[in-house]
Computed example of a mutant assay.
Amino acid sequence: MEKTYVMIKPDGVQRNLTGEIINRFEKKGLKLTAMKFLRLSPEQAEAHYQEHVGKKFYDGLISFITSGPVVAMVWEGENAVSAARKLMGSTNPAEADPASIRGMYGLDLGRNIIHGADSVESARREIAIYFQTGELISYEKNIDQWIYE
């Protein structure tokens, strides 16, 4: 099964959307295999956003993501990366499907509630920033037979 990394950003935590967001992923049929409530260090934030170093918005990203607590999660399922991206919606909430998380709760590009890995490779890299191998819990769910053929 594919794994993906998802983070509820400080604005999502401050707006009390954590439970709603987790619920959406569970109802989709993805399986939560790791979760942490934490405040990112500048080093974690820099590792997370390494591909944006040198861009004009980089300092703002680092400042925002370290401004309050986040919820870091690993979700598992068939095509987990693309399933999570669809649930989240477009990065720009103004362009997001109205039924997506960003479409329902986001108004501003810089405060778009949630982050999700954009590829399997990014998911592996991001999971490694926040979780050690032993923190990922592998388990079977009886409901899987009703989700996957």
Results as ranks from 00 to 15, higher is better:
E2Q: 15
E2T: 00
K3S: 07
T4S: 07
T4M: 10
I8Y: 02
I8A: 01
K9L: 05
G12K: 08
N16E: 15
T18S: 10
T18Q: 11
G19S: 07
I22P: 09
R24D: 10
F25A: 08
E26G: 10
K27V: 13
K28E: 14
K31H: 10
L32Y: 03
A34L: 12
M35Y: 10
M35Q: 12
M35T: 13
M35N: 00
K36R: 14
K36H: 15
F37N: 03
F37C: 02
L38M: 15
L38P: 09
R39D: 15
S41Q: 07
P42Q: 12
E43F: 11
E43N: 13
Q44K: 11
H48W: 13
Y49G: 00
Y49A: 05
Y49L: 06
Q50A: 15
Q50E: 14
V53P: 05
V53D: 06
G54K: 01
G54P: 07
G54V: 03
K55N: 13
K55Y: 13
K55Q: 12
K56P: 15
Y58P: 01
Y58E: 03
D59Y: 11
D59M: 04
G60L: 10
G60R: 14
L61R: 11
I62M: 09
I62P: 00
S63W: 09
I65K: 06
I65E: 05
I65V: 15
V70W: 08
V71D: 00
A72H: 04
M73N: 05
V74F: 06
V74T: 12
E76H: 06
G77H: 08
E78F: 07
N79T: 12
A80E: 04
V81A: 04
S82F: 10
R85L: 14
R85Y: 09
K86I: 13
K86E: 04
L87D: 05
G89Y: 00
G89M: 01
S90R: 07
P93A: 03
P93K: 04
P93F: 03
A94D: 14
E95W: 04
E95G: 04
A96P: 02
D97P: 05
P98M: 05
P98D: 10
P98S: 11
A99G: 09
A99S: 09
S100T: 09
I101Y: 06
G103N: 02
M104Y: 06
Y105W: 15
Y105N: 05
G106L: 06
G106C: 11
L107Y: 11
L107P: 02
D108R: 09
D108F: 07
L109R: 08
G110S: 09
G110R: 14
G110N: 14
N112V: 01
I113F: 03
H115Q: 08
G116I: 02
A117P: 01
S119A: 12
V120N: 06
E121C: 02
E121Y: 05
S122W: 09
R124Y: 08
R124C: 04
R124H: 01
R125Q: 13
E126M: 04
E126H: 04
I127H: 05
A128D: 09
I129Q: 03
Q132T: 15
Q132G: 11
G134M: 01
G134E: 05
S138H: 11
S138W: 06
Y139S: 13
Y139V: 04
K141P: 00
K141Y: 11
N142W: 14
I143T: 10
I143H: 10
D144T: 12
Q145C: 09
Q145F: 15
Y148C: 08
Y148P: 02
Y148I: 10
E149I: 12
E149G: 00
E149V: 00
E149T: 04
